[in-house]
């Protein structure tokens, strides 16, 4: 068995395990930490897929910024746990529907895509070079790039407006 496949299987098991841990942990802080580990695992997978720049922005943006924001809000609210979070009787339809969707999507994936070919080993510079990505981002994707700046501005203003305490007159 090639080394790369072993690495992939270990990473996949870690990703699924941490996702499951997030799903079942009662305490929101533990869930957030499981999710950080999940994002880190997926980042390593991006490295396996010859996308180093995406991998590092995954670590900084997701595992860094977004999850820190999450942890900050969890600790600010002080509402980490809910009493009787899991009521199994109510959960049954959700679990059945989820498994149904899973079976359906896996079936469709195997039905529709016949991509059993391995990824070609010659990726070369075409994917890993950040300058090529930057050139594409600032030529073909210039308009979406500028639109995201407006999106971020709107999100920032929105977050401030939503959390602002109104003065009681």
């Amino acid at each position: 068995m090639p080394v790369e496949l072993i690495v992939f299987i270990l990473l996949a098991l870690t990703a699924i395990g941490t996702a499951l841990g997030m799903l079942v942990s009662r305490h929101a802080v533990y869930a957030a930490l499981f999710l950080v580990l999940n994002f880190a695992t997926v980042a390593i997978m991006y490295l396996l897929l010859d996308a180093p720049f995406v991998a590092l922005s995954q670590v900084t943006v997701y595992a860094g910024a977004i999850m820190v924001l999450f942890l900050f809000v969890i600790m600010l609210l002080g509402a980490e746990q809910l009493p009787d979070e899991f009521k199994w009787r109510d959960l049954l339809p959700a679990i059945v529907l989820g498994l149904l969707l899973f079976a359906e999507s896996v079936y469709l994936l195997f039905q529709k895509i016949t991509l059993n070919t391995g990824l070609s080993s010659a990726a070369g510079e075409a994917l890993t070079d950040p300058t090529l990505m930057a050139a594409k981002l600032f030529s073909d994707y210039l308009l979406p790039f500028e639109v995201t700046s407006i999106l971020l501005l709107v999100a920032m203003v929105g977050a401030i407006v939503l959390t602002k305490q109104e003065k009681k007159a």
Partner: peptide, 9 residues
Amino acid sequence: MIPVNYYII
């Protein structure tokens, strides 16, 4: 190399 199917699954 790893088949792309694995990643999609």
